[in-house]
């Protein structure tokens, strides 16, 4: 599969995993950075089978509910694909990527933007501490518009 097609698939996968739509993810400016990051950090065979599994999910399921069910069954279980799905979610949510396990685990934030574009802050109706400031006094009211 060519990179441009894979990138499209990565966008679709990311949307299913994060619960944000593809355009919202593009809006973070992190799509390509994360795509190449995941490519570089994951073993080729594992990555191929991960994409293949997702292609299957998208081929045989149409509705969001069906896709979610299929992902829960074949992608999310911990032993599947070395926890790659969770790693991708964590990358989008926190801008972090952890290599290794236990005492040897090392966590990276690929770029300053990765941290600043963490989706988890949007979910909490706030912003990453130290970036995307909301302005004087904004904290005195609810963030609901």
């Amino acid at each position: 599969m060519r990179n441009t097609e894979r990138l499209k698939l990565f966008a679709k996968i990311s949307a299913v995993l994060t619960g944000f739509n593809v355009m919202e993810l593009w809006g973070t400016s992190m799509m390509e950075t994360y795509f190449y990051w995941v490519n570089a950090q994951t073993k080729g065979a594992e990555l191929d089978s991960f994409y293949a599994e997702f292609e299957k999910v998208f081929t045989y399921n149409v509705t969001d509910e069906a896709i979610d069910r299929a992902v829960a069954d074949s992608i999310m279980p911990k032993e599947s694909f070395g926890g790659l799905a969770n790693a991708i979610i964590t990358l989008w949510y926190l801008g972090q990527w952890t290599c290794g396990e236990g005492e040897k685990a090392k966590t990276y934030i690929p770029t300053p933007e990765a941290y600043q574009q963490g989706l988890i802050w949007l979910i909490g109706q706030t912003h990453p501490p130290g970036a995307k400031q909301p302005g004087y006094g904004s904290w005195a009211t609810t963030p609901d518009k």
Binding site: V16, T18, F20, A72, M76, I89, Y93, I120, W121, G124
Partner: peptide
């Protein structure tokens, strides 16, 4: 938190809209 909030939810197998 919220990194641990995320890891707690991931440990339960959550993803997508449900995770959000």
């Amino acid at each position: 938190a919220p990194a641990t909030t995320l890891s707690d939810c991931l440990a339960k197998g959550q993803f997508g809209k449900h995770l959000r």
